[in-house]
Each structure stands twice: as C-alpha cells, then as structure tokens.
Amino acid sequence: MSTLKPAVNNDDHIEGSLSAPVEIVEFGDYQCPYCRQAYPIIKDIQVLFEGQIKFIFRNFPLAELHQYAFLAAQSAEAAALQGKFWEMHDAIYENQARLSDDLFLELAGGLGLDLEKFKQDVASAEVKEKVEGDFESGVRSGVNGTPSFYVNGEKFDGGAIDLRNMLNESAE
C-alpha cells in the first residue's frame, strides 16, 4: 500500500474543515481528461459530505503528454499567491477544452487578479518549485497516473466514482 509523502501540511491547498475526519488528496493534471471527469464528482462529494471531508489538490502535470499541464499548474499556483487558488483550479477544469497560452491570462483577468503580478508569478522560481515539489511528492507517494487519490494518507485504489461510493457506504 502506498502512503502519502509528505503528509498534508501548510504548503498544501486545503478546502473544507481542517478538523474533518476524512482527508482526500488528489494528484491531478489540469489537461488530463480523466481529471476533468473527476472534477464534478469531487465537487459533489464536497457538498454531500460537507464538514466531514477536507480536500487537498496537488499538482501532477504529465508534461510529456499534455502541452499545457505545467503552465496550467503554474497558473493555479500564481493565482494562489493572490488568494484565488481554488477559483483558478475550478476555472481551468471548466475551460479545459479551451486550454491555450492565452486562456490562463483571460481566466486571471476574469478572477480580478493583478495581471502583471500574475504574469511575474507564473514565471517565478517559487511557483515552478511548488509545482515540481507537488510532482515529486506524487512520485514519492507512488502516483502512476492521474487522477490519483489518497484517503487519510493511504493510496485509494479507484477513481472518483469509486471514492464517492466508498464514502456513501461508510456513511450508511
């Protein structure tokens, strides 16, 4: 069984109650079609189990397969520096069919970000290191594709629908 390395920490983007008993970590690639399919299911899980789960997203861009995956991850992290990680995360998945060099700036503008700061941050070493650090965490944790999920620190063997079914069963 693969375990999450490192454990969830202050460098992570966490949505939901910090004291929630169930911690779900997704390693995702913004250009991955399977991650796009998982996105609304994760949103559904967050609504169904509000207060019971905290959701963490770590970047795992498969750059050799997906032309815009790394830039998308950098864009989400640059938005995070202006307090808008989750808004950019959602906007990228909701516009996955339109991924292009120009899309990220358009999304940043739509989120009301400071575009000059956004452009500088996307290109910064700090943002690149965050994305690479998440990717390295995935490698160390045994991620072999996206999306990969970890529940309470243990690799979950299945996709987002399996995850929802497991949570439903344990809630009964």
Rank of each mutant, 00 (worst) to 15 (best):
G112A: 10
R58C: 07
F85A: 01
R58D: 09
H66D: 07
L71E: 15
L113F: 10
K84G: 03
H66N: 10
T146M: 02
P147G: 14
D134Q: 09
L48H: 05
F57A: 12
I56C: 07
G112H: 08
I45K: 03
G145K: 04
A97N: 13
V151Y: 05
V122E: 03
F135N: 05
D90H: 00
L65S: 06
E136D: 11
V127L: 07
G51S: 10
E136Y: 11
A78T: 04
G153Y: 08
V139D: 07
E87G: 00
G153A: 07
K128G: 02
A108V: 11
M88Q: 04
I45M: 02
S100R: 14
V131L: 01
A97E: 15
F49T: 11
Q52S: 09
E77H: 09
K155F: 09
L107V: 10
Q82K: 05
E129D: 09
L113G: 02
K130Q: 14
A69I: 08
I45F: 04
D114G: 02
F60I: 05
N59R: 12
A79Y: 01
E116R: 10
A97Y: 12
F57V: 07
K119R: 15
A63T: 14
L71D: 13
V47G: 06
D101P: 04
G112N: 08
F55C: 04
V47W: 00
I53E: 06
F57L: 09
L65E: 06
G142A: 12
N59Y: 14
A69K: 10
A79G: 00
K119D: 12
G112E: 06
G158K: 06
E136V: 06
R98Q: 15
E154R: 13
S75I: 04
L62I: 09
L71M: 15
T146L: 03
V127E: 08
V139Q: 15
D121M: 03
S124N: 07
N152T: 11
E106F: 06
V139L: 14
G133K: 09
R140D: 15
G158R: 08
I53Q: 05
F60D: 06
G51I: 10
Q96M: 14
Q96N: 14
A78S: 06
Q120H: 13
L115Y: 02
L71P: 07
A73V: 09
S100Q: 13
Q96K: 14
A97I: 11
K117Y: 02
D121W: 02
K155C: 01
E154G: 06
A76K: 00
P147H: 12
A97T: 14
K84L: 00
H89M: 01
N59M: 10
S124H: 06
R140W: 10
E116L: 09
K155D: 01
Y150T: 10
L107Y: 12
H89T: 00
D134S: 09
E94R: 11
D157A: 13
D134I: 04
G138E: 07
Q120I: 14
Q46M: 14
A78F: 01
A79E: 00
E136H: 12
S137P: 08
F118S: 05
